[in-house]
Nucleic acid binder design. Sequence first.
DNA 1: TGAAGTTGGATTGTCGACAATATAGAGAGT
DNA 2: ACTCTCTATATTGTCGACAATCCAACTTCA
Lengths: 221, 221
Amino acid sequence: MSPFQEAPVTSSDKTFIALRADVVEGVIKAGAKLSEAELSTNYGVSRAVVREAINRLENASLVERKANVGAKVVTLTLDGLIQLYQVREALEGMAARLAAQNMSDDEIEELQSLLNNHAKQVKNGESYYQEAGDVDFHYRIVLGSHNQQLISMLTNNIYHLVRMYRVQLGMAGPRVTTAFAEHTNIVQAISHRDAELAELLMRRHILYSKNNIEAKLRTIP
Amino acid sequence: MSPFQEAPVTSSDKTFIALRADVVEGVIKAGAKLSEAELSTNYGVSRAVVREAINRLENASLVERKANVGAKVVTLTLDGLIQLYQVREALEGMAARLAAQNMSDDEIEELQSLLNNHAKQVKNGESYYQEAGDVDFHYRIVLGSHNQQLISMLTNNIYHLVRMYRVQLGMAGPRVTTAFAEHTNIVQAISHRDAELAELLMRRHILYSKNNIEAKLRTIP
DNA sequence: TGAAGTTGGATTGTCGACAATATAGAGAGT
DNA sequence: ACTCTCTATATTGTCGACAATCCAACTTCA
């Protein structure tokens, strides 16, 4: 289905995931201070596991910590969004390149059928699932790179921050059908094993997406 | 001087840095198990701070942890090295592109003079400082990107892992003068504010470096 | 009035003890 | 001899208490 980490086993894992969700979804507001004691009672665990969860969030760039002072949820800025998308462009571009080289024929076929499902949804105007579909699409390609380092960086860190921006600054917008066309071209490049083109198209796709969001944001804050 | 993090203030910071150094330099061998109790006595701190240090090392991809089992130092493989350099190519390529756009004239001038010093050293055959010089060069450009996300990923994670491979598999090799020529071209592109070319040259530079190391390694393990 | 120094309260950092889990080895059965 | 089960032990996960640090409010002095 969707981006799944390994199943959480330890209490610390669950707390980390719950806390991350609350930060990403805005239940805990951007810029808010994270009190260890307060979170400890809220999640019903000891301060030690809260601390561990906060540490992990720090590495994911979702909170900032200062020694002897505490941790704050990051603040969302236009500049931060741009920098994030620059990194994303570099990493996902490479992912597309590697996917064109390394994906198995089966994986490519699944990617194709995923795209076909999206095509139906676009025709039916089911805009809700468009977001999930977009995530799925990018996720498949990242996995297809078969590069663990790359997969880890994108799925553990960058995607959560991207989602935090999307959710809290209310992205959804048009760009559905045009993005779908771009997806189609990328898959075509991959299935032709054209690594160079796959990277180029993916980078442009993300760049367009950035420009689109950026334009919307400049009108608000 | 050299890549410096923020000064370590807390006991946990110091332990993390000491432990990381021991892992990178091979004092603790690749693949070895990390016993929390043992490290606790060795570094003279409580298990809690050792655990925090290990967690941070995990995010830096220097150790792998399994719940209820423990942490092991990563094992160094050819495949791991290749994947690492693929990520490095993507990120540093983007860094060079952004550096060409964002570096101040002063920063570029400092980069130039750094290169001049290297030129002298290369002529004198001081091969030792070549490594430090190379690190310095790349570090400056990464900082010049003015992209915090990018800077953090490279300096906190990737560079330490790269160094671990270099140290433990005994890199040094020739490629000194030829690498210097590549550096020169990159700086030229940056000072011309040619972002496209700067990225291209940096990516090729890292790709060559990867191929060089890879060729050496294939003869050994 | 304003600036520097001081103190109290609250928050984070560190510690040792206890609980939960995995793994190696012994033992039983075939 | 081999496999399976079960137990013992060592290691990690979690907890509550104590120590160190920061910050704000208050006092003191020019």
